[in-house]
Amino acid sequence: MSPYAIRRLRNGAATGLSIAATIAGVGALFLILGALLWEGVGSLSLSVFTEMTPPPGASGGLLNAIVGSLIMTAIAIVLGTPLGILAGTYLAEYGRYNRFTFVVRFVNDILLSAPSIVIGLFVYEIVVAPAGHFSAYAGALALALLVVPVVLRTTEDMLLLIPRELREAASSVGMPRSVMIIRIAYRAARAGMLTGVLLAIARISGETAPLLFTALNNQFFSADVTRPMSSLPVVIFQFALSPYADWQALAWAGALIIALAVLALNIAARVLAAGRQPT
């Protein structure tokens, strides 16, 4: 074979393999979504949303888990978002060029991908162990600690995108810096910052590991944040690994609910972010 033919062959092989890899990657997404729809839709019914998690063998739903997830996610967002926004504001507005900002940004980027189960252990150590019992607020705190890096990162990125002229114009009419940030910079970066919050919700609504030993689980309905509370991911974990067919069916239904919610949040965040860009 001539060197030219070998080169062409190599090029053809590489092209073919890269197309195959892309098909495999996109195929994986469709396989997962397909399995979720296939198994999940069959187990989805009105009772999933209206009844409590059942004991093995009885019929029931996921109401307490859904409510528990909503409560803890809401608390986590309320706790984590302001902290993330304020810290992001410092990095982008006050300390843009100093070394401290560099360190915080570096650490935050690491926290962004750090294993969430370690955050669960941390909250167990500082909240659950001293209090002597598992509680929903410990779970919410663990989730809040996962919210902070996401919100911080997007807030900083969005504030950095704001043109300098906007800030200068605000300052030139005598606006103090804090007022300029709150009324001009935040307003200009609003959509991007909201995207960050949506992504943070998407991130924590499927988190299981940090809840396992903070909020634990609860077979009954509870809105009391000082007691253990069930959540969708933990119930899915427990039910999917059980030997009971109806528990496994409920786990699939729960997985479908979470996946749809997370996909919807991701798409909403994407639309929101795209709407802001001139392209």
Partner: peptide
């Protein structure tokens, strides 16, 4: 979007 799917979904899909 593959990156956004929660790990518990990968778990249940992997198992079943």
């Amino acid at each position: 979007l593959l990156a956004g799917i929660p790990s518990i979904i990968y778990g249940i899909w992997g198992l079943f």
